[in-house]
Amino acid sequence: MRFERYGIGIIKGLMVTMKNFLRPPITLQYPEEKLITSRRIRGNELVWQVSKCTGCATCAKSCPQGNIEIVTHLGTENNYVVDKLQVDTGKCMFCGLCVESCPYEALFMGRSYERATYRRRELVLSKEALELSEDRQPSGYFYPRIEVLLPRQTLLLYWDREDGQKLCWFPWRKKANRGRR
């Protein structure tokens, strides 16, 4: 085998890198610019709808980690009252099996992905912390009826091509045009 390309391969490679040099960067400045995540995102939390929960503990049985702790007592109207529902999101691997197994549509995946804390114990979500509220909205994972209400995910595939999301090379025009949110 001979070395017969006379450096042409390297020159072609240099041309490719130069082509990419003139392309706009694809990274974005995270805390200022954010992507719209998937409609089905399995975020770092679970969202629990109290009114629908019957305390059947199917979620606890389906959890691979044995991570959902649920304690109930018999209520007055032939129902179970949930005394304690606790999820250690530090142990949770967000597989979504609990959401899929819930027969009463009371448990959802959350949409948050910014749940870093300073203490591990703050990752343990109790009953109150799990409840559905204004800023704790469920994601569309396994629930197509919720999914259609959420904004569309931004895709790198359509980067620079649709919706006027034009990137530019020069930094001084960056502020006006960059960012996908």
Binding site: N20, I26, T37, S38, R39, R40, I41, R42, M93, F94, C95, G96, L97, M109, S139, Y141, Q153, L155, L156, L157
Partner: peptide, 25 residues
Amino acid sequence: FYMFREREKILDLFEMVCGQRLTYN
């Protein structure tokens, strides 16, 4: 970085389908 740019597109697609980018389940 070039390869990861393309990989990112695929991961975006997976995220769209199943909500995660690495452990799809």
